[in-house]
Amino acid sequence: MNRMFARFAVTAVMTAMVAIPLKARAEDGRNTSLQDMLAKPCPTAAQWMKIREKQALSERETAPVAKPLDMALYDELVRMRAEDRRVRTPLQEGGEHPSSAVIQAVMDVDKRNLSRLRDITAHGLPTREAIGSDGQAALFILIQHADMDPALQARLLAENEKMGSKGFEPGDVAMLSDRVALRLGKEQPYGSQLWYVNGHLAPKKPVGQLDAVEKRRQSVNLMPLSDYICMMEVLQKPR
């Protein structure tokens, strides 16, 4: 295993959870809601998700939905996100030791997406008006997974800050902030980047003081860290 591949293998199981799926696969292979999967092992996480789902539904009902001005770019971003999800599903379900084939598939897609991402953002981040809210969410996923170019991630994170309320969702920005901080050797402010320690997930060090981390997570509507770790262990359990 070459050095780059080995480094990616470690990063892969750190598990940055960006878009929490509404559906997941139970141990018996059935598709089930994530809330149902979490109900017994992580009851407070399931309750948190239930509350947030109601809030999100209410926001969607009251917020106007505008058609993206650049439909071609919107469609492309959505397709790229779909491919990202397709190759990462086996990674998520592979537990602590995903296969080399699964990791290679993710690396190949990330490399293609990164090349296109550089072109798309060469003159700055596309606006929400240009690509719509869903297109913006898709774009964020691609940036979050652009680990082969941490300088690009840092630049786009800084550009997003200038966009204010028209930028990415605060919780998403928090997770990208953690990712960039780790690559710079700094503390994770939100503790979202996980890896395995003695068979269990834990925030990758360095990470800030946990009480301060929890306050920051709450400020951007992220679930408590203990619930997040519990949820991720359920999702990462080999199936």
Rank of each mutant, 00 (worst) to 15 (best):
A39E: 08
A39V: 01
A39L: 05
K40Q: 13
K40W: 04
K40S: 14
K40V: 14
K40E: 15
K40Y: 06
P41D: 08
P41A: 08
P41H: 03
P41E: 09
C42I: 05
C42R: 01
C42H: 02
P43K: 13
P43D: 14
P43R: 10
P43E: 14
P43Q: 12
P43G: 14
T44A: 13
T44Y: 03
T44E: 15
T44K: 10
A45P: 06
A45N: 09
A45E: 08
A45I: 07
A45H: 07
A45F: 03
A45Y: 03
A45W: 01
A46N: 06
A46K: 05
A46F: 01
A46T: 02
Q47L: 12
Q47P: 06
Q47I: 07
Q47A: 15
Q47D: 15
W48S: 10
W48E: 10
W48C: 11
W48I: 10
M49C: 04
M49K: 00
M49Q: 05
K50Y: 01
K50Q: 12
K50L: 11
I51W: 03
I51R: 11
I51Q: 13
I51H: 09
I51A: 14
R52W: 00
R52Q: 13
E53S: 12
E53Y: 01
E53C: 02
E53D: 10
E53F: 01
E53I: 02
K54Q: 11
K54R: 12
K54F: 02
K54L: 10
K54E: 10
K54S: 11
K54G: 08
K54Y: 01
Q55G: 13
Q55M: 13
Q55K: 09
Q55P: 03
Q55C: 04
A56Y: 00
A56P: 00
A56Q: 05
L57K: 06
L57E: 09
L57P: 00
S58E: 13
S58D: 10
S58L: 06
S58T: 04
S58M: 08
S58W: 00
E59V: 06
E59Q: 09
R60H: 09
R60S: 11
R60F: 04
R60N: 10
R60Y: 02
R60E: 10
E61G: 15
E61K: 09
E61D: 15
E61I: 03
T62W: 03
T62P: 05
T62H: 08
T62A: 12
A63R: 14
A63T: 15
A63F: 05
A63N: 12
A63D: 12
A63P: 02
P64L: 04
P64I: 00
P64Y: 00
P64W: 00
P64E: 03
P64N: 07
V65M: 11
V65W: 03
V65H: 11
A66F: 06
A66R: 11
A66D: 12
K67W: 05
K67M: 13
K67E: 15
K67L: 14
K67A: 15
K67F: 08
P68R: 01
P68M: 04
P68C: 06
P68T: 00
L69V: 14
L69R: 15
L69A: 15
D70T: 05
D70C: 08
M71R: 10
M71H: 06
A72Q: 12
A72D: 14
A72N: 12
A72S: 14
A72Y: 02
